[in-house]
Design a protein around this nucleic acid. Structure first.
Lengths: 221, 221
DNA sequence: CGGGCGATTGATTGCCTTCAAACGTGGTGG
DNA sequence: CCACCACGTTTGAAGGCAATCAATCGCCCG
């Protein structure tokens, strides 16, 4: 467990629970984290499973010379940190201040031996995560900069946006590290989409979808 | 199921089995496929789970305009096509002529309801596949051409090579589509590594590891 | 008002792709 | 047996796209 949780003032941890699958809930502790705080690090023992209540979380890996690849973003309702091995294969940090429910993995493990639905739910989540990772691989391997950003926006808006648009919790740096680009390339892609009236950018973090089909054809390219 | 299996002469399907996890085996049919034959296509219903007996298989996804991203290569002993959904999220083809054992998914599903070890084994496999996919994302997102090829060679040699080197069953085109590069870039990377005496290339498919540390530092770069 | 940080924009570089040609090997038919 | 063809691979030259280097902008906070 990271030290960062001791670096900021916290209120008393509250009891809360997370839902796994349709029928199962597990009791855990709800914690507050500040922005850019580490939740766990790559290689650390897996003690908990996490669920986002509010805020946003990024999971990531580093290459040996320190380049960062963000694997996914997690928003309210999402689970993360669910791993089989003894040690985390990636690290997790908050993107913005967040409330996270932490459930002991041992509790989940125990449940899987008693209730097959728990293991099934775990498998479902892992399989869905795998699908997402493969989609991500397709984007990283075979799309250009503008297409990557368009794909990111469309996917993100579908998951977390309203008809009014999306509020991105993450910086251009985060988006760049998710898409395998530089911040400049991401910024240029946003500007380009705005010039073509595919989106509006009232602020750098707020995106209003103006012409979704334009984005989609750009994404497909 | 693809028609391709009817396009080539086959002997009578033989009964065989695949092992899932340490303790479970499932009975299935062993089939022969020629090279570059489709085993299943993206979007087709999931009827079977597959295991490679001999030969090699690639799984892949296509972007809407037809660009191909190879997700993984499967060699003897590997399982593939293990998906939760009703439809395949990717397609699979042989790289070279191969023998594949096919087990009905319904049989596996049934086992998971009767034996928790079966579901656990399924989860283990899915979780390991997810780890591999994330490693792949790191390579695709944050590494240059030479690093990608070096990473591919090291990983492949660790899994399937002997001290004498590796015989690559796949073409440069396959490697390129796995690494998000062009065949020319892959070829240049091989030539460059040979020039630096990191590898020998007796033939284009045979790779002798000559200086592994050189490869590793190139991979890390 | 000043400072700091993230974002944007511009200029240039560099790497990978694209386009093109030659090479080598395995297979087929003369 | 050899010539020739097909296909995959290698190599070369040129171009393009994203990275890098650099400066400016805008906004939030003190």
């Amino acid at each position: 467990m990271s030290l960062s949780q001791f670096e900021s003032v916290r209120e008393t941890p509250a009891i809360d629970s997370i839902k796994v699958g349709a029928h199962l809930a597990f009791r855990g502790v709800r914690m507050r984290f500040g922005r850019n705080e580490e939740i766990f690090g790559e290689g650390e023992p897996v003690e908990y499973v996490y669920s986002v209540v509010s805020g946003a979380v990024r999971t990531m890996r580093f290459s040996s010379d320190g380049r960062r690849q963000i694997l996914s973003f997690h928003l309210p309702g999402d689970l993360f940190g669910l791993e089989l091995g003894a040690a985390h294969g990636f690290s997790a940090e908050t993107v913005v201040a967040a409330e996270i429910v932490m459930v002991r993995r041992a509790q989940l493990e125990k449940a899987t031996t008693e209730d097959p639905r728990a293991m099934r739910a775990w498998l479902d989540i892992t399989a869905q995560t795998l699908l997402d990772a493969r989609e991500h691989a397709l984007v990283l391997g075979r799309k250009g900069a503008n297409e990557r950003v368009a794909a990111f926006l469309v996917t993100f808006a579908d998951r977390f946006g309203s008809s009014a648009g999306v509020d991105l919790p993450m910086s251009r740096t985060d988006i760049a590290d998710y898409l395998g680009l530089t911040i400049e390339s991401v910024s240029r892609a946003f500007s380009e989409m705005e010039r073509q009236h595919a989106i509006d950018l009232p602020t750098s973090r707020r995106v209003v979808m103006r012409d979704r089909s334009l984005l989609l054809q750009r994404e497909a390219a």
